[in-house]
Design a protein around this nucleic acid. Structure first.
Lengths: 254, 254
DNA sequence: CGCGACGTTGAGTTCGGTCAATCAGCGTGG
DNA sequence: CCACGCTGATTGACCGAACTCAACGTCGCG
């Protein structure tokens, strides 16, 4: 069953890396109604405590989930790239527990909860895929707690870079890889729980060790193995690269 | 429809604080087959990378989800009390991404995935409640990232104590509260990302400020408002105390 | 060309870590 | 009953990774 190109393709791909959906179910996902929206850098497009009627999906760009202390310090609790649905959970929990902000000019699409709920009710396998997606996000969060709680600055940074490289599916050739990562050092600081100054020094250190280089738009990893070792990075928790036959499907086809 | 007492009652209660289930659905939850199990303190009962056939539910005691660095430092990423299902997510994601360990002598029940899947398939509202449960857990995790990433030791500790008091539903009278919290300072350190020595000093400080006292088994909060202020604690994210009419139900009754 | 955002660097400080000793409670076995 | 040993709590002295403050550099853009 062929299907026209859609902003939702990357999202469907993401679901399919971990869940099994029939052709009909895939079409149902792609046919979800969407409203595209451009968000400029450093703009919240979901506010704390806002009650949502839509979930959004990142089409292009970079989105951060922000928490914040009463002293005004900000902490990024999750980074979301194209294909991610940063607030899919709002389908069952519409009150936003944290803000979403674009870190660069970002295009998102909004999908009405009504449509998501309808498709989840009609196709239990899609509900299952949504639940699984939330679960994988939680596994990533749990890694972030370990990262921020127990690792030193270099290790933290290396881990984050490895995670993002994996999620961007950066092609690994000859122990090198590179991927577009349009993030400032200030935002890296908010993601790692460091200060911007120390992020700068940490990156300098990783560069001097010959592990990677970075500019505003792009990360070049020059020694993947060493960076992964330094970051204590093991990709398993991301549930990427699941072999097709290992994907799980509970729901029976309609 | 009356029902015999069950180890699953606290779990059902937990689901019902956030989700709406019909009498039939409640019975279906309570009728889940269980196998009780006693776990002694400091014993892993779910190991990293283990593929699970059961989810467990805490009946009595305290369970920690543990992550760990390659240097052997441990970080608790979640604490689970009676009524919690620490690995409900294994229903859709059976490979464990972190270890579960009892922090005191704990009794759990194990529920086969097959039974959970069957009940979720038969009653979409139960699947929805499970998903919502995962989502709330993720919201707590996200708070922990903020806590560990951006707050100083005193604030961190105060926040953790307030969170646990709220989850234990500690009765608040005259700005005081107390609840049973059988945790060692070593485990508190693993939960807050501090060292045991500094936990000790931090608790001493909170005590000297007249905010709380603590021994191995019990926490006494002597000035709830001040402790909550110090910990920047706002209970909203826990999704406790949801008014009955604000609970969400998407699925239509069978 | 000037401005603003971001990146870089140095000097000094501090919060929390490390190491090590001591204390307190408690269950066990002689 | 009491000595022993274990686990966890407490305290002190010192250290160091990361923070703060402040200046300067660089790049893109109006």
């Amino acid at each position: 069953m062929p299907h026209r190109p859609s902003d939702l393709h990357p999202f469907l791909e993401r679901l399919l890396t971990r869940s099994v959906l029939t052709a009909e179910e895939r079409c149902a996902v792609l046919d979800l109604p969407t409203r595209a929206d451009q968000v400029s850098a450093n703009r919240d497009f979901v506010h704390l405590d806002q009650t949502l009627q839509h979930s959004c999906i990142v089409v292009k760009g970079l989105v951060g989930r922000f928490g914040q202390t009463s002293q005004g310090a900000r902490q990024i609790t999750a980074l979301h790239i194209a294909g991610d649905a940063p607030d899919l959970h709002s389908v069952v929990q519409p009150k936003a527990g944290s803000a979403l902000q674009a870190l660069t000019t970002t295009t998102i699409v909004r999908v009405p909860h009504a449509a998501l709920r309808a498709v989840a009710a009609r196709y239990p396998a899609i509900a299952e895929a949504f639940w699984r997606d939330s679960v994988v996000d939680a596994a990533v969060l749990s890694q972030w707690v370990v990262n921020v709680g127990r690792r030193d600055a270099r290790t933290r940074m290396a881990h984050l870079l490895c995670e993002m490289a994996s999620r961007f599916k950066a092609r690994l050739t000859d122990n090198r890889a590179s991927f577009p990562f349009p993030i400032t050092q200030v935002h890296l600081a908010d993601a790692t729980g460091l200060t911007p100054v120390h992020v700068n020094r940490t990156l300098k250190c990783l560069k001097e060790l010959g592990l990677m280089t970075m500019n505003r738009q792009w990360v070049q990893i020059s020694d993947w193995k060493a960076l992964a070792r330094m970051g204590e990075f093991h990709a398993g928790y991301l549930q990427i690269d699941i072999k097709p036959e290992e994907r799980l499907r509970i729901a029976v086809p309609a």
